[in-house]
Simulated scan of single mutants.
Amino acid sequence: MASRGAPPFSTLRVTDRDDHLEVRLHRPAVRNAIDQAMVDELLRVCAELEARPRILVIAGTPGDPATGARGVFASGADIAQLRERRRDDALAGINSGVFDRIAKLPMPVIAVLDGHALGGGAELAYAADFRIGTPEVRLGNPETGLGIMAAAGATWRLKELVGESVAKQIILAGRVLSGEECLAVGLLSELRPAAELVAATSALVARIAAQDPLAVRLSKSVFHTPREAHPVIDTLAQAVLFESEAKFERMQAFLDRKSK
């Protein structure tokens, strides 16, 4: 990822893989709690991907079998900072703004979850298009137990993802889901042992990267368009794709393979 004089990342580990950008949350001393510095650096990542669209993979700190340390995605917002925030900070939508921007990135976003993904960490995961996790995942929104609410996407994204009943259990009653429970309710698309996370993520990245990038971008955009915009938005997007060189090349290649 080209920095062009920008300061180095301190809360993230960013690796450019050509067809995707790999971002690891990196505040292990506080279980990857999301603070203002991490928000600012995630915004830098968004700016890069908006300028040069690629798949985004967001992961946390992997476990270490040698030491027995467990993996962690993000334990939530930094409570020390959160305690000092007041009305104007809430109105600024610090976390909700960056998570919404991540959700609206041109290309798909994959969240790779291991261990705790709580509070803001869960809301970051909800903003992804795909979530792959381990049986050790613990995902939930304990905000009401701290005298606040989950205000960075959970109150509406989670209902869309798992339905009203499960969403209310998580948001209003503090239920924390295990990896198996996340898979059962559709929050995870895949459940893999920690040792298989990298391979499973690489396979998903490869499947997405094999598609036509413009078709993927437009499909993601149209997918998230309000119902009242359909079917007009579908027709317009398809009209753009019908004129693309990739459409002719890919369809011709398909016909050539079929004729053999």
Rank of each mutant, 00 (worst) to 15 (best):
G68Y: 04
P108I: 01
E50R: 14
L43E: 15
A209F: 04
I58P: 00
P28G: 05
A125Q: 03
S3W: 11
L177W: 13
T61V: 07
V240D: 01
V109R: 02
V23L: 03
A239E: 12
A209I: 01
E84N: 11
D19Y: 13
P65E: 06
E181L: 02
A51E: 12
N32I: 08
D40S: 11
Q252M: 03
S259C: 03
R257V: 02
V23Q: 09
A111D: 01
L255R: 13
L49M: 06
V39W: 13
L21Q: 05
D114W: 08
V176D: 10
R175P: 07
N95D: 09
F248I: 06
E228M: 00
R86P: 03
L139V: 03
E41Q: 10
R85S: 04
E41P: 11
A117F: 08
S10D: 07
R192L: 11
M107I: 00
N32W: 12
G147Y: 06
R24F: 07
E228T: 04
G121C: 00
I132N: 05
S3Q: 08
E84K: 08
D18Q: 15
A210I: 07
P8T: 09
K260G: 14
Q211L: 11
E123M: 07
R86S: 06
R13G: 06
S219Y: 11
P231N: 02
V112A: 01
A246S: 15
P65F: 03
A246D: 14
T61H: 07
T61S: 09
R44P: 07
T201R: 13
R44D: 15
K159E: 12
A6Y: 11
A77S: 11
T201Y: 04
S244T: 15
R31W: 12
A6P: 07
